[in-house]
């Protein structure tokens, strides 16, 4: 009885969470010019529009540029930060870690306002670099979480072994630590890219008309001329996110499997 209830409740939650996605996706294939049901006939018309209309095409390209840039920035900085916080050589590592993770919880609006003022000062408002920096700030926590977890999984005696076998610190890092942290770095990068991809609020604050991202374009097109291209864009985003999520899950699974296998108890 209780289990049945549990199951029903769980299913209800899942449906509640997924419903909006299922509601919008079929509309990507409508032949009508209106973003509503019923769908008169199916066509590729809006997907075509999405890939040919200038505003949409540039927004997709922008998303890729900004997402790529932010990912590179966030991955490099986040990885360095995780390495620095690892050995416990720094005082107040706990506080530092909390600070680094703050962008995850600070409302994007607050971050957006601050970021805009800051970027104007630097003369970077409404530039690609500005948007990339702003997005990177938001993405860094994801990289730190993921890379820190990977570093924590490295048995310190493996690095000690390398060192005793004649490897100076830089070589230990290059030959042992980094290769073992790569899965964490890659999945951090994936999360960073996905985060940048659907960021709207921050983009509204810091991006000019030239840095219109796909998410931003969807937001404005919903208000200006509402048509099913939005649904097509949503489809594109969801497919993209699913691919990235799948990749991250695959990486994690492989990492877990190899971690299990190297456990010394496995005789």
């Amino acid at each position: 009885m209780f289990r049945a209830l549990q199951f029903t409740f769980g299913a209800a939650i899942v449906i509640f969470l997924l419903m909006p996605i299922f509601a919008i996706l079929p509309l990507a294939f409508t032949s009508s010019v209106f973003l509503n049901y019923p769908i008169p006939a199916y066509s590729m018309r809006w997907l075509h529009e999405l890939t040919t209309a200038d505003v949409w095409r540039t927004s997709i390209v922008n998303s890729l540029i900004i997402g790529g840039g932010a990912t590179v920035f966030a991955t490099v900085l986040g990885t360095l930060a995780s390495l620095g916080m690892r050995k416990g050589a720094l005082p107040m590592v706990g506080l530092l870690r909390t600070l680094f993770l703050l962008p995850m919880v600070v409302p994007a609006v607050v971050l957006g306002v601050g970021m805009q003022i800051f970027l104007v000062r630097l003369g970077l408002a409404s530039t690609y670099l500005g948007v990339i920096i702003a997005h990177a700030v938001l993405c860094i926590p994801f990289v730190i979480v993921s890379v820190s977890a990977a570093l924590q999984g490295i048995d310190p005696s493996i690095e000690r072994a390398a060192s005793s076998l004649g490897a100076p610190p830089v070589t230990v890092f290059r030959r042992v630590t980094l290769p073992l942290a790569v899965p964490g770095v890659v999945s951090g990068a994936i999360f960073a890219f996905a985060t940048s991809l659907d960021e709207v609020v921050l983009t509204l604050f810091v991006a000019g008309p030239n840095q219109r991202t796909l998410a931003r374009q969807m937001f404005s097109s919903i208000r200006e001329n509402i048509n099913p291209t939005v649904a097509a864009a949503a489809l594109l985003l969801i497919i993209g996110t699913l691919c990235l999520g799948g990749l991250a899950a695959l990486l994690r699974w492989r990492q877990k499997r190899s971690a299990l296998k190297t456990a010394p108890s496995a005789i």
Binding site: S157, R160, V176, L180, T262
Partner: peptide, 12 residues
Amino acid sequence: GVVFQNYALFPH
């Protein structure tokens, strides 16, 4: 040459 209790082989 150090041999550790958990072997510490390079897994990669």
